[in-house]
Simulated assay, not measured.
Amino acid sequence: MNVPETVFSHEWLLFLSVCESKSLKETAERFNISTSSASRSLKRLEDSVGVTLFDRCSKPMVLTESGKRLYRQVLPAMKITQEAMEQVREENYLFSDLRIGFLESMSLHLAPQFLSTFKKKVGRITCLTGSSDRLLECLRTHDLDIIISSDPALRYTDWRRLMIIREPSVAVFPKAFKFEDNHAKNWQSLSLCNLPFINSYEKSGRGKLVNNFLLTYGIQLNGKINVDNLAIKLAMVVDNNGWTITSPLSLMTHSAFLDKVTLSALPGLGMERKIYLLSRSDFSQELFESIAREICRIYKESVMPTLKKMTPELKDSYFVPDFDEEIN
């Protein structure tokens, strides 16, 4: 939870973080201090409150009954204070600093435009890029405020989420490779195409999507290599070492390969990639919606036309939600 230290002291923030994470070590790492320093800060808080908040005889240490009661009472007060501060900022059209994470596939054609147009709405923007699993971890550990992820992270039931983009997947083959009618008739023809399948890393968003799809429909593709980097996969495809599946948006980021490969729509039921905007529940609802609108606007106006031109047979497979309000 992001609350200015001028409102809640460093000791109180440490206390709440330990209550949430149940780990003094994790809290110390989050605040970039040593475990002993964090422990001393908590002792100062106990001295100021006048009661013992942690049972240090337990390993790891646990909250006492007084500590549990204090946590239950302080947490709502913190949320009320944060909401009041956000309301004041929103009334004055000013948000706090923003830490946002984008998927790697958005780093070239979407993130730069967003940062350029959104910088006037916040104090300062910090932008990280990476795979869904990395961004989710940064959101979970409070290193980011909001992320764009292909994993909806449904296990975090209290997080705010919105599906903002839906796009098809495409098969990528070496330039000289041809099916009899230029397209795979079915998944069996793909599995028997005499080229090994180069899959994505199983814990990545693409890897989860592909593997879940293949498992659901009982499809087996021959291949022994899993790679977490699309550039490596495309380089192998160009060298006739296999074929792969990816998204058109990801291909835009590696446009140098487009003239060296052949794209093919997947047969029958395709595998859609859904992209979500995710934040914790304490993140400003108004700012969340404003970010969603801006990302969807950029995607629809600046990205989608190129994607449809790249994959004309899939032009009806792209989707972004419509919002009632125009983005200013």
Score class of each variant (00 low, 15 high):
residue 189 S to M: 13
residue 186 N to S: 15
residue 236 M to F: 10
residue 160 R to A: 05
residue 166 R to F: 05
residue 197 F to I: 12
residue 149 S to A: 09
residue 205 G to D: 03
residue 213 F to V: 12
residue 184 A to W: 06
residue 170 V to I: 15
residue 189 S to D: 11
residue 148 I to G: 02
residue 244 T to R: 06
residue 143 D to A: 05
residue 174 P to T: 10
residue 180 E to A: 14
residue 167 E to T: 06
residue 128 L to C: 09
residue 242 G to L: 03
residue 161 R to P: 01
residue 222 N to M: 10
residue 170 V to E: 04
residue 237 V to C: 04
residue 198 I to T: 04
residue 145 D to A: 02
residue 124 R to L: 11
residue 132 S to E: 03
residue 185 K to R: 15
residue 240 N to P: 00
residue 149 S to Q: 01
residue 202 E to N: 05
residue 166 R to P: 00
residue 146 I to C: 01
residue 138 C to D: 08
residue 140 R to N: 05
residue 239 D to F: 00
residue 227 V to N: 02
residue 234 L to Y: 05
residue 172 V to L: 08
residue 229 N to A: 12
residue 194 N to M: 11
residue 158 D to W: 01
residue 227 V to R: 05
residue 127 C to W: 03
residue 124 R to D: 11
residue 141 T to G: 00
residue 215 L to N: 14
residue 151 D to E: 11
residue 214 L to T: 04
residue 148 I to Q: 00
residue 195 L to Q: 09
residue 135 L to M: 10
residue 210 V to W: 13
residue 155 R to W: 09
residue 225 I to T: 14
residue 141 T to Y: 02
residue 170 V to S: 02
residue 210 V to D: 00
residue 195 L to K: 12
residue 207 G to M: 08
residue 177 F to V: 11
residue 130 G to N: 08
residue 243 W to K: 06
residue 206 R to F: 02
residue 219 I to D: 05
residue 180 E to W: 10
residue 187 W to E: 06
residue 143 D to N: 09
residue 231 A to S: 14
residue 152 P to Q: 07
residue 203 K to D: 12
residue 240 N to L: 02
residue 143 D to G: 01
residue 193 C to I: 10
residue 201 Y to G: 09
residue 195 L to G: 06
residue 236 M to R: 15
residue 138 C to S: 10
residue 167 E to I: 04
residue 125 I to G: 03
residue 136 L to M: 07
residue 235 A to T: 10
residue 143 D to C: 01
residue 169 S to A: 14
residue 222 N to T: 13
residue 180 E to V: 15
residue 204 S to E: 07
residue 129 T to A: 05
residue 208 K to A: 06
residue 169 S to D: 05
residue 211 N to P: 00
residue 245 I to F: 13
residue 131 S to V: 00
residue 235 A to M: 08
residue 155 R to G: 12
residue 159 W to N: 00
residue 184 A to D: 07
residue 212 N to W: 01
residue 244 T to L: 08
residue 126 T to N: 06
residue 186 N to W: 12
residue 208 K to Q: 15
residue 245 I to S: 07
residue 185 K to V: 15
residue 167 E to Q: 15
residue 215 L to G: 01
residue 188 Q to A: 12
residue 214 L to R: 08
residue 169 S to F: 00
residue 197 F to Y: 15
residue 223 G to F: 06
residue 140 R to L: 04
residue 139 L to P: 00
residue 213 F to N: 05
residue 209 L to Q: 11
residue 191 S to C: 12
residue 195 L to P: 07
residue 131 S to Q: 14
residue 192 L to N: 15
residue 135 L to I: 06
residue 134 R to V: 04
residue 178 K to H: 15
residue 139 L to I: 08
residue 177 F to G: 08
residue 148 I to C: 04
residue 128 L to W: 03
residue 164 I to G: 06
residue 206 R to Y: 08
residue 177 F to D: 09
residue 203 K to V: 02
